[in-house]
């Protein structure tokens, strides 16, 4: 199972040419290659305008590559069939405001040839999964940003695809909503679904991804397993509880006696603001 390739992008180049100023082309993606194995969570990171979205659109056949190829489970992205096994959540999605949550999922389900009882069950199941059962019959016009993002995720999963493509899944969502989405991605990974997401919020990528690619000005600058990329091999971290100042002093002297080692810093570890916020709001809720 793990040996199957979910996504393969080879030497993707995409030039955008305005029809009226046709001479000068803008190269959005420049020779990007990547391969995602089935079951992985792959994060593509990079600053705004670095070609993340374009890469994803090319993978979905929404733009045609100027050169290079994209395929999903071995099927060419320019063919309709390649989209049988993929779910997509675009950046800042606005779905049809006139539909309710359940109607939205039903609509997308029908587009994927689901129907009848099967579809109804799937809709209920997905609404439960993204925690929107209560908002089932409310129109999307009244949804919050986080809810829209979650219904978007549910929509992407409607035909039970093997691959999910998420463009900035947590952009503009508050930390609680963002956490929910992160947890969802984890759940999906546990179910064996391949996830390809892109984001510029590095911390989130760090939390959920197995593989990471860094894209900058249309070029892939670094790619590999997350653990390999971020480990600092020559440093060691010690975290202690209830250490007295005397003990600290002893450690300091011990380290000074060792010639090859240097003490870089000592002090109280800090929680992240995000973690603090989540903990506090969690307590308030209870």
């Amino acid at each position: 199972m793990t040996s199957e390739t979910a996504v393969e992008i080879r030497d993707l180049v995409k030039d955008f040419r305005s029809p009226l100023r046709g001479v000068k082309a803008f190269r959005a993606v420049d020779g990007v290659s990547l391969r995602i194995q089935a079951g992985e969570v792959y994060g593509l990171i990079g600053p705004n305008g670095s070609g993340k979205s374009t890469t994803m659109k090319a993978l979905l056949g929404l733009v045609a590559p100027s050169s290079g190829t994209c395929s999903i489970f071995g099927k060419d992205s320019l063919k309709v069939d390649s989209r049988n096994d993929v779910g997509f959540l675009p950046e800042n999605p606005y779905f049809y405001k006139h539909l309710t949550g359940a109607e939205t999922l039903r609509f997308y389900g029908k587009l994927c040839n689901l129907r009848g009882k099967l579809l109804e069950n799937r809709v209920t199941e997905l609404l439960e999964l993204v925690d929107l059962t209560n908002a089932r019959d409310r129109r999307l016009g009244g949804y919050s940003k986080g809810m829209l993002q979650r219904i978007g995720l549910a929509q992407a999963m409607v035909q039970d695809p093997r691959l999910l493509i998420l463009d900035e899944p947590t952009a503009g969502v508050d930390p609680i909503g963002s956490r929910q989405i992160r947890d969802l991605i984890m759940t999906l990974r546990d179910r064996g679904i391949t996830v390809f997401l892109c984001s510029h919020l590095l911390e989130q990528v760090q939390e959920v991804c197995d593989h990471v690619g860094i894209i900058f000005q249309g070029k892939m600058v670094k790619e590999g397993r997350l653990d390999d990329l971020i480990a600092i091999e020559d440093q060691t971290e010690v975290v202690m509880k209830n250490a007295s100042p005397e003990l600290m002093e002893k450690i300091r002297t011990l380290v000074e006696q060792e010639e090859s080692a240097t003490l870089l810093r000592m002090g109280k570890p800090r929680t992240t603001l995000e973690r603090l916020f989540l903990r506090e709001t969690q307590i308030d809720k209870k």
């Binding site: 659109k57 979905l60 056949g61 929404l62 309709v80 069939d81 989209r83 049988n84 993929v86 779910g87 997509f88 959540l89 675009p90 950046e91 800042n92 999605p93 606005y94 779905f95 049809y96 997308y108 587009l111 994927c112 040839n113 978007g152 929509q155 992407a156 035909q159 493509i165």
Partner: peptide, 13 residues
């Protein structure tokens, strides 16, 4: 509204 993306990302010719 990018709703077209979500439709064309489904197997819809």
């Amino acid at each position: 509204d990018r709703t077209l993306y979500t439709i064309l990302a489904k197997p819809v010719p």
